[in-house]
Every structure is written in C-alpha cells, then in structure tokens.
C-alpha cells in the first residue's frame, strides 16, 4: 500500500478550473482532473499536449496503402505474373484503388489502436477507484488528482493547499 496521490473534490466546474490553475501556478505538473462532463479549457490549464492522433492515423494510412501496394506488386511481378490483354504487369491505375482502400483500413486501425494506447487502455483498475468519494453514486463530482510522483508533492502541504483552494473534501489514493 504505497501512496499514489491526493484527490480533492470541488463544488463546481469553475472551482475545479481555478484550483487546477492555482496548482499549476505553484509548480505542480502531475495533475489530473475528473468531471461529469467536459469542462472547457481545463485540458489547457492542466498542460495537456494537443492530441497526436492525427499523425498516428496518417502513418497508419500510409503504411496500409504501401503494404497493400507492395503485396499486389509482389503477386503480379514475382509470385504469379499473368499477361492480361497485353497490359503491363505493373498496372498501377488498378492497384491505386486497392492501396487507397487499405490506406483507409490502416487509418481506422491506427486510430483504434492509437486511441487505446494513448488512453493507456485496457486498464482494469485505477487508484482513484479506491477513493470512497470517487463513485458515480455521488452523481459525478469535480475532482482534481495530484499524483505523489509530482516533484512538488508533500502530502501535508499539498492537502493544505488544496483545502485553501476551496476543496470540499480531500482523500488519499493508494496504489
């Protein structure tokens, strides 16, 4: 049972955003926030990187298209060359269609796998589930998590700071 962090509950989205901003101002970097609905601007306050999924999906699309094209090229040039009506073996106009479709497939797969990887899924347990206040039975609350791994984390100090920022309740999370 090692300490994972401290979770603080706030009354509303505004208080949560304010607290997150204040904690960032104090130099904390390993913060996470939970809310029943997306709070505008909170991701920026928490210093989250803009998503890199676009690049992942582009890479998946290019990879899928190249793989399909290479497979077709290998089968018509090396594995099973057939002369169809005198056309060149490398008949690219027809192959482009297959390459495009596999590009879309690659993009979709990269999006799916990349989304799971970026969200660290599948993850069956997260330490915040152990906090008694962090349940849907409470109807969704506005929570700010400060991880113990944060270099600025001092359990007593951090808790005091969070209370000073208007937290209605504070709990510790354990691994």
């Amino acid at each position: 049972m090692s300490a994972h962090g401290v979770i603080a509950y706030f009354a509303d989205a505004g208080a949560l955003s304010e607290a997150a901003r204040a904690m960032r101002g104090k130099g904390y970097s390993r913060l996470d926030a939970f809310s029943p609905y997306p709070v505008e601007g909170l991701a920026d306050i928490l210093g989250m990187r803009p998503t890199r999924m676009g690049r992942v999906i582009l890479a998946g699309a290019i990879l899928g298209a190249l793989a399909a094209y290479a497979l077709v090229l290998y089968s018509v040039e090396v594995d099973y060359p057939v002369n169809v009506g005198g056309r060149p073996l490398h008949s690219w106009p027809a192959f482009v269609v297959i390459a495009f479709e596999c590009g879309i497939l690659g993009a979709a797969l990269a999006g799916f796998v990349g989304m799971l990887a970026a969200n660290r899924l599948p993850q069956y347990y997260h330490p915040v589930f152990g906090a008694p206040g962090f349940t849907f039975a409470h109807g969704g609350r506005f929570c700010l998590l400060v991880e113990a791994a944060d270099p600025r984390f001092r359990k007593g100090v951090t808790k005091r700071q969070l209370r000073g920022l208007g937290a209605t309740e504070i709990e510790e999370t354990v691994l």
Binding site: G85, R87, P93, A94, V96, V97
Partner: peptide, 12 residues
Amino acid sequence: AFMQWLIVWAAD
C-alpha cells in the same frame, strides 16, 4: 474523374 479514367483505361 479517376473512375472514368480507370474504366476507360481498363477497357482500352
């Protein structure tokens, strides 16, 4: 545009 080209090219 590509489909017209592909079909015409394939029929030749």
